[in-house]
Structures are given as C-alpha cells and as structure tokens.
Simulated assay, not measured.
Amino acid sequence: MAVHWYPGHMHKAQKEIKQVLPQVDLLIEVLDARIPYSSENPAIAELRGDKPCIKVLSKTDLADPKITEMWQQHLEKERSVKTFAATTEEPAKMKQIIDLCRKMLPDKDASVKAINTMIVGIPNVGKSTLINILADRVIAKTGNEAAVTKNQQRINLGNGITLFDTPGILWPKVENANSGYRLAATGAIKDTAMEYDDVGFYLADYLIKAYPECLKERFKLDEIPETEIEFLEAAAGSRGAKMAGGRVNLHKICEVLINELRSGKLGRVSLETPQMTELEEIEIAKVLAKKAQDKLKRKESFKTGSLTPDKKDRKEKRESDRAAQSARMKKQNRSRNK
C-alpha cells in the first residue's frame, strides 16, 4: 500500500529535530508494540547516529506478549539501544523510563548539568500520553487519531531532566508496502488517506493465517475460511454488514475489522515479527536495486538515443548533410573574402 500522507508540519518537524539534536543527550523513541518495525521512522535512525536511545514499545496490552519479547531482544542487538515495554495504562511503570535515562548516562547524571532528552515517534503511538505521565501533569494534547501534536516544545521533568517534545512524523515515502498496510490498520495515518476495503482485505488475509482462533471467537464462526473474501463474507453475516438483496457491505465489515483490531477486541495481536521484516527488507533491497538499475539504463538510453537501425541511418545522413552544408558555406565565405 502506497502511503500518501505527509503533512507540511511533519516536514517542518523533521527539520527542527535535526537542528535541536546536537543539544540532546538521549532519544526516547516511542513505537507501537504491534508494529515495532513499521512504526520505526528510518529518518530518526539516520539523524540519531550513535546517541543512546530508549525504544519504548507502547500499547503492549494490544500486542502479542511473546512477539513483543522477541522484538525487545531483536532491537537491543543495536548498540546504545535499550527497550522498555509497557502501556500508558501503567503510569507507575512508565515513570521508570526516567531512571533508565539516568542509568544510560551515568556521567551526565553525576554532573550538575541537566540531561537533555528528546521524545520522537510516528503519529498515534501514545507519545503525548507518555509525556503527560513523565511530567506528572497535562502538557501534551492526546487523542486517538493521527497528528494531534503540531509543534515542538521543551518540558522540564524535574530531577535534572529536560524533555524536548516533537510532533509525530512519518517519512515521505514508505518503501515497504506491508508497512503501509500495518500503519493504516493501527491508525498511524489519517483514515481519509486510506481505503478501508484495501486495508481490510490485507488485515483479514494476515489474521486468517496468524490468529485464526481470535477470529473464530470474535465473529462466532465454526471454521475459518481459507480466503480473505470468504472470511469477510462470513463475518458480515454475523455483524449484519449486509445490503439489500443480501449482498455483503465490504466497506462496513472491513471498517469493523480494523476498528476491532485497534480497540483490542480481537485480542492481543501483533502484525509483524522480526523474521517477517528481515525477509521483507531483502525483497525491498532487490526492488530498489532493480529500480536503480532501470534508472541507469534510461539515462544511458537517453544519452546514446534508443535508435532502431533505420532511425540510426537517417540520423547519420542528417548529420552528414549538415556537415556538407557547413563545408559549402565556409567555402563560399572564403571566396567572397578574396
């Protein structure tokens, strides 16, 4: 799925992050525990460099706990990275992030200077709620929709820690089509920027294979059909998502499926594993390499001209005629000057 949603304030926010980063000692990157790979902004990794980073896996109450543990082990293979898995419904646990900041910067913690941290993340991962918990007061506007925070702000958390807040930012082009679907399914992009039917079909196909029992229980089905269209038709029957004449209202049942994933009514579901995304990265690398190769061929073709033998002969004749005409004109000019 191609994601075409990159509001102007996101571009501005990315520039501001780049400007402030030299003052920052540590990054706190908030990820959606259901999609840690797809919710990790590659632009942040590039900007961060070697700075220490706490990757907070939020919404763990909605994610598969076994897969969340797998992701923690996978992410901590990266140098200077620690993970923290919790939900914003556990404020006491979330506050432990402040102690983790100090542990990761012992030299700075021992000095009189404040520890400067920056919180980053894509839209709708719980970043604003986390800020309010860490600050012990309502500072950031929260909402179950994408792009609530629009401006950067600096917050004093007390105890020698300063936090730079930034708007949730996506990146201009999501290369991995699977990530586009996952971002849409979890609500990281505005619903107006997605097609419910398209995302619903993708989600149904994945859940049939990965969480069939969750679907059976939630939609009261005796058996799970083999294909996504058959499942959506069966699910529509149990939810009254039918139109006149008994036809299935695909838009409505897809919307139901997506909303029940987001609310956790389907159960604790993760939409990706480290192994899945590693294979996807290999495929993406192949696609990008082919695109680069095709682009190079087009450039070469433009330089040399993609001529058939017939066109090539005509081109050579035109060039020969021009050269002969130029020689005649030079000869005539010399004759006049004598």
Rank of each mutant, 00 (worst) to 15 (best):
T129K: 12
T142N: 09
P106L: 10
I54H: 03
K127H: 02
E69T: 13
H74A: 15
K55N: 05
V56D: 13
R79W: 05
Q96G: 15
L100S: 11
R137F: 14
P91S: 06
E69D: 14
K141P: 08
T83A: 10
I97R: 02
T142L: 06
L75M: 02
L100N: 04
N132H: 02
F84D: 13
S58E: 05
K113L: 08
I54K: 02
V120Q: 03
D99P: 05
I115Y: 11
K93I: 12
E89N: 10
M94K: 04
V112Y: 07
V112C: 08
P106K: 08
C101V: 15
K103I: 09
L62P: 05
E90S: 11
E89R: 15
D99T: 14
K150P: 07
A110C: 06
P123H: 07
V125D: 00
K93W: 04
T149Y: 01
T149V: 10
I115K: 13
K150M: 12
M94H: 11
P52H: 06
D64G: 01
E76N: 05
Q153A: 15
R102P: 13
K66E: 05
V81P: 05
I115P: 13
V125M: 01
N124G: 01
K77N: 05
L134Y: 14
S80H: 15
K108D: 08
S58D: 03
K113M: 12
I155G: 14
N144L: 06
Q96P: 11
K59W: 03
G121I: 00
K55W: 01
E78A: 06
F84L: 10
E145L: 14
S58A: 10
K77C: 02
A135K: 04
T68K: 00
L62S: 02
E76C: 06
D107E: 13
I115T: 06
I139L: 15
S58K: 03
S111F: 09
V120R: 04
R154Q: 11
D107K: 14
M70W: 00
A146Y: 05
T142I: 09
N132E: 04
T68I: 05
P65Y: 03
V112A: 14
A85R: 04
E76Y: 03
T83H: 07
S58Y: 00
A110S: 07
V56C: 12
V112W: 06
L157E: 08
E90Q: 12
T129Y: 03
S111W: 07
T87W: 07
E78M: 08
T149I: 09
E89V: 12
I133N: 06
I155S: 09
